[in-house]
Simulated scan of single mutants.
Amino acid sequence: MDGPALPPLLDLAGTAVFALTGALLAARLRQSFVTVCFFALVTGVGGGTVRDLLIDVPAFWIRSEQVAPVVFAVALIAWFTPSRWWEGRLLEWADAAGLAAFAVLGTAKAMAYDVALLPAIVLGVVSGCVGGIIRDVLAGVPSILMRPELYVTAAALAASGCAILTMMGLPQGIAWSVSALAGFALRGAALVWRIELPAYSRDD
């Protein structure tokens, strides 16, 4: 099925940011270069692949001549740069950027294929979150999904903003930028101030 496509550079940028988080996590775990490449790939394309399968279109990276080289280049960057460059919370901030970007891109692509508003938002959340979840599961570290700090909520904000602003008729560039910045800001606030959703606490 052929259909509308998102600007390739935006998809590549989102893929690269998420791929970097996967490659850096594998490097931090002292894995081989092959494993670093694999983590970069599954993290970079995981969410978008699930989105495309649900929309019933070919996975966005299958027919692209750019995605695989970009993922490989990101893996090389993670492999050859000193580990001190990536110390601290840079991995989490890169993940926040990828989360917001992919949530917006996922929603925009779903709407371009005439998916209804609420399902399009859900697909945006899937696009933003699934790659990171796969990365964490493969690495054997606690998934971000299971932590109380805002993560899925930030993806939902970015996805909802994209859908609503687009429906209001705002230019795509403005709608996407505002929505991605909102999602990134919320995730950033959660990282800085440890903003969390209340956990289930009923004992009866």
Score class of each variant (00 low, 15 high):
169 G>C: 09
111 M>K: 04
152 V>I: 11
19 A>F: 08
125 V>L: 14
120 A>F: 12
18 F>H: 07
131 G>S: 05
196 E>G: 03
81 T>A: 14
113 Y>T: 07
93 W>K: 12
22 G>K: 05
119 P>G: 11
185 A>N: 10
98 G>Y: 03
33 F>P: 01
106 G>E: 00
114 D>A: 15
66 Q>I: 08
175 A>G: 14
155 A>Y: 04
25 L>D: 05
200 Y>N: 08
85 W>C: 09
137 V>C: 14
81 T>N: 05
100 A>S: 11
74 V>W: 01
145 L>D: 07
166 T>A: 12
118 L>C: 07
168 M>Q: 15
151 Y>T: 03
202 R>K: 13
53 L>P: 04
202 R>G: 05
72 F>T: 00
145 L>E: 04
159 A>Y: 01
174 I>N: 06
98 G>D: 04
33 F>L: 09
144 I>W: 08
97 A>G: 14
102 F>T: 02
127 S>R: 06
82 P>F: 03
48 G>T: 11
9 L>R: 09
31 Q>V: 02
95 D>M: 07
81 T>K: 03
151 Y>V: 06
158 A>G: 07
113 Y>F: 15
2 D>K: 05
139 A>V: 08
175 A>R: 12
173 G>F: 09
135 R>Y: 07
73 A>Y: 00
152 V>T: 13
165 L>F: 12
54 L>R: 07
5 A>R: 13
195 I>P: 05
28 R>W: 05
202 R>N: 11
130 V>Y: 06
140 G>K: 02
90 L>E: 08
115 V>P: 05
171 P>E: 11
175 A>C: 11
113 Y>M: 14
96 A>L: 01
188 G>D: 03
151 Y>P: 09
77 I>E: 01
179 S>M: 09
137 V>W: 08
110 A>T: 02
181 L>I: 15
80 F>S: 06
187 R>K: 10
15 T>W: 00
65 E>L: 14
6 L>A: 04
164 I>C: 13
184 F>K: 01
170 L>D: 10
35 T>P: 00
70 V>W: 04
47 G>S: 12
